[in-house]
Design a binder for these strands. Structure first.
Lengths: 204, 204
DNA sequence: GATTGTGAACAGGTTCACAGCA
DNA sequence: TGCTGTGAACCTGTTCACAATC
């Protein structure tokens, strides 16, 4: 199964597995079967087995998976073995909230740079980082930052996206409610909260 | 096409269409074809035609769709014709950020109630609403609030979910990184930011 | 006996392609 | 002619079911 292209949905689930395995490890567990893990995550056991088998034969028939081994493998696959730096563009309401969001640390991320275009914000200290002018986005290339979070208004998002690509960014988490027409093979994940709430209404 | 079950993905796209049509209306446009709209949203035109045709024949062959008519229809379908009230559970970092998030207003939402379990927060004024103790979630039933946003830690989320269902909530937007085992036909949408960033790493 | 890894069947959503209408 | 609405073909990911393995 190793040689085939990995389905996107599989990759999306890997952090979910990792998070839960760390929980199990804390509880003192050593092994888990796909069935037991699936029950906890409310998934089909075959999904988990298939997902993992894309990256190698990690399990033991009749026994299950070693939690320690699996954590190590997933960390390696997701490149989370050590802290990764990320850049935040936009220090407004959404951006500030993200700066304080504890979820990033749990996944080994650290927001190591913040950019904004407002003179009132540039130079300000936000936690451990200083807000830089947005024109300095290009410096990311030499700072070994490959991941960016866009938290600017829609009108600005497209341009910011292009600047980030020019700066050699490899992945973008986009909170602006618009499509980014990104050239090349940069991975973009969109999170559009208002859109989700909008569709939620329909079901009520 | 009217009588069939509506695909989830179709419902998710409706707010996207609405947002863009409002933009077009602002620009003074009167009509748009599925092709033109698809180009702007980076979708396939057939997706748009099929999505809309689930709710009626809104278009005119050879001409396209009337923007005003379509906006009206989408607003009605998504029940956005007037401001809807939503409850926020959890007034921590994520919760406070959401309170300030402008996206909600644009979709006709207003956070009309905030709950927290911390005595330090209960009674505090946040914007226009006062934080209430989480034990008062059951009052939502009599306050005509059908939509809730969960922004509490994972350990608490499951219980909050159950309480919301008991209070007659119809839809939940869940920011806690865990599955909610919700009984009945309550619609749950999960947003797990850390998980998205985790998977993003993989592609870099 | 228990559980993995995986081909085969299935499900849901997307794209194609075109008949039919303005 | 231009564009909609929609069946048919296609694609992607899920579930089933079972041989292989511990």
């Amino acid at each position: 199964m190793r040689h085939r292209r990995i389905p996107e949905e599989t990759v999306r689930r890997l952090p979910l597995y990792l998070r839960h395995l760390l929980l199990l490890k804390d509880e003192g567990e050593k092994r888990i079967s796909s069935k037991a893990l699936a029950d906890r995550l409310h998934l089909n056991p075959a999904v988990i087995r298939k997902d993992l088998s894309h990256f190698g034969d990690f399990g033991t028939p009749g026994v299950g998976y070693s939690i320690d081994t699996l954590i190590g493998r997933l960390r390696a696959i997701l490149k989370l073995s050590r802290v990764q730096k990320a850049a935040l563009v936009g220090a407004g309401k959404v951006g500030s909230a993200l700066l304080n969001y504890p979820g990033f640390e749990n996944y080994g991320f650290r927001i190591a740079a913040v950019f904004d275009n407002s003179p009132q914000k540039v130079g300000k200290q936000l936690g451990t980082v200083t807000v830089e002018d947005i024109s300095r986005v290009h410096t990311l290339r030499n700072r070994n930052i490959k991941l960016a979070i866009i938290a600017v208004p829609s009108q600005a998002a497209e341009q910011v996206g292009r600047d980030l690509v020019k700066a050699g960014i490899g992945g973008i988490l986009n909170f602006a409610p618009c499509h980014l027409d990104i050239p090349g093979k940069v991975k973009v994940v969109n999170i559009d909260i208002a859109m989700e709430l909008g569709s939620l209404q329909y079901y009520i």
